[in-house]
């Protein structure tokens, strides 16, 4: 369809031949008041809780124990987790009553299992955003995209040290424009919908529960 491409582009170009970009008006963003770290953390937690996520503050050494407790409370006995990722060893400290399954397989070969027989998954996170209560997932071959998407319960480990005030600050400071991964996702709660009579219901298609394990030392 090169003719469609050329037609569209030439129509558009003929309209802005003389455009002078240096004359474009200056764009001004809003200056949000500076917040202390504890205010940011509170904002982050409040947003997530309002969006129905569960927040558990803990230390790194407690990850295995807390996961065990939370799974037991839900009568879940298995957990899918990433291979060689930052918290793999901490996750492996969970109780032996939990069957730990490593995501060391190709998704296409194990689709059915992931959809029908994987009640919970755990991932780490790259960073977090205070202003909107968002967690940044940056999937890798070790922690694939579907690990945080398909299992109905998603545990996500967030280090409070990685909190940024806003999405804009984050993009700028981490220079995202230089290199984005195959897929990056901001997650701000469990899956939800208000498509039936504006009534909120959780667990539309993605995880029904988002359990945030917040490391704050």
């Amino acid at each position: 369809m090169t003719s469609a491409r050329n037609n569209i582009l030439s129509k558009l170009k003929s309209q802005v031949k003389d455009a002078d970009y240096s004359k474009l008006p200056a764009e001004q963003g809003f200056n949000y008041p500076q917040q202390s770290f504890s205010e940011q953390l509170e904002q982050f937690i409040t947003h997530l809780e309002n969006n129905h996520a569960q927040i558990i503050k803990l230390t790194r050494a407690e990850i295995g124990k807390v996961i065990t407790q939370e799974l037991a409370a839900r009568n879940i006995t298995s957990l899918l987790y990433g291979d060689n990722s930052q918290y793999t060893q901490d996750i492996e400290q969970s109780d032996s009553s939990i069957t730990l399954n490593k995501y060391s397989f190709d998704f296409a070969q194990h689709k059915e299992r992931l959809f029908n027989d994987t009640p919970a998954g755990v991932t780490g996170s790259r960073c977090a955003i205070a202003q909107t209560g968002s967690i940044v997932l940056w999937p890798t071959p070790d922690e694939p995209r579907t690990l945080s998407l398909v299992p109905p319960v998603h545990f996500v480990i967030v280090d409070a040290k990685t909190l940024y005030p806003s999405f804009g600050d984050l993009i700028e400071q981490q220079q995202w424009a230089d290199k984005l991964p195959t897929n990056a996702v901001l997650v701000s709660g469990p899956s939800k919908t208000a498509d039936i009579q504006q009534t909120l219901a959780y667990g539309a298609h993605g995880p029904k529960e988002l359990i945030v394990l917040l490391l704050n030392s």
């Binding site: 998704f107 071959p141 694939p144 195959t182 996702v185 997650v187 701000s188 469990p190 993605g206």
Partner: peptide, 21 residues
């Protein structure tokens, strides 16, 4: 909403070594 539940940014098809996508 301050932000939607998901903001999904896609920049590549599945890369070598990736297990899904």
């Amino acid at each position: 909403q301050a932000i939607s539940t998901y903001f999904n940014m896609i920049s590549h098809p599945r890369q070598q070594d990736e297990k899904d996508g």
